[in-house]
Simulated assay, not measured.
Amino acid sequence: MAITAGQKLTASRLNIRTCRARRTTILSLTTGTLTPVSFDVNDFDNSSLFTAGGTLITLPVAGHWGFSAYGGFASNATGQRRVLVEIGTSGVYPGRDARPAVSGDLTHATCSGSYVASAGDQLRMVVHQTSGGALNLAADAYFSVWYIAS
């Protein structure tokens, strides 16, 4: 909802639809496989956009939505680490980030962007790694969305 000249800023106008889903445990990833991330905690969700245990965030109204996703991958010097934001299960990715692997520390990958949605569209966070073997996504990976404008 846009505020136009002459309108007052009220509490209801500040109620932006938003949520952040977070994973509190590690997730084992198979090399070369796109893996949707399931989240077990809602840090905040003021519009019932997400159900704990799921992978999809549902955008209830049409408009411009922002998103941000983060994943930390276990130390391993081989390959790439990727965080992607996917529209539903379509294989279409409006956001992605790829990082070379880091040895001795987590490889941090973040992805942010925006998406013009129809009411009921869904977004999910997907991760990918090419270490040559199993590798963990660290706890505290998160995925946030927020409504920008109609």
Rank of each mutant, 00 (worst) to 15 (best):
V61K: 00
A62Y: 04
A62E: 10
G63T: 03
W65M: 06
W65K: 00
G66N: 15
F67H: 03
A69I: 03
Y70W: 12
Y70L: 13
Y70V: 13
G72M: 02
F73C: 09
F73K: 02
F73A: 07
A74S: 15
S75G: 03
N76K: 03
N76T: 09
A77G: 14
A77V: 08
T78D: 06
Q80K: 14
R82K: 14
V83Q: 00
V83M: 06
V85L: 11
V85N: 11
E86G: 07
I87T: 08
I87Y: 06
G88S: 13
T89L: 08
T89H: 02
T89R: 05
T89D: 15
S90Q: 09
S90K: 04
S90T: 15
S90C: 08
V92H: 08
V92E: 11
Y93V: 04
P94E: 12
P94Q: 13
G95A: 05
R96E: 15
A98L: 13
A98K: 06
A98R: 07
R99V: 13
R99T: 08
P100K: 05
P100F: 07
P100S: 15
A101S: 15
V102S: 12
V102A: 12
S103D: 12
S103W: 03
S103G: 10
S103K: 04
S103M: 03
D105N: 15
L106D: 12
L106K: 10
L106E: 11
T107F: 04
T107I: 07
H108W: 08
A109S: 15
C111S: 15
S114T: 11
Y115R: 06
V116P: 00
A117C: 08
A117P: 06
Q122D: 02
L123K: 01
R124G: 04
M125H: 00
M125G: 02
V126L: 05
V127F: 01
V127T: 13
V127C: 03
V127K: 00
H128A: 07
Q129W: 00
Q129S: 10
S131C: 09
G132Q: 05
G132P: 01
G132M: 06
G132K: 03
G133H: 01
A134P: 02
A134E: 09
L135A: 03
N136G: 05
N136W: 01
L137R: 01
L137W: 00
A138C: 07
A138Y: 08
A139L: 06
A139P: 07
D140A: 11
D140Y: 13
F143N: 02
F143H: 02
V145A: 09
V145M: 08
V145N: 01
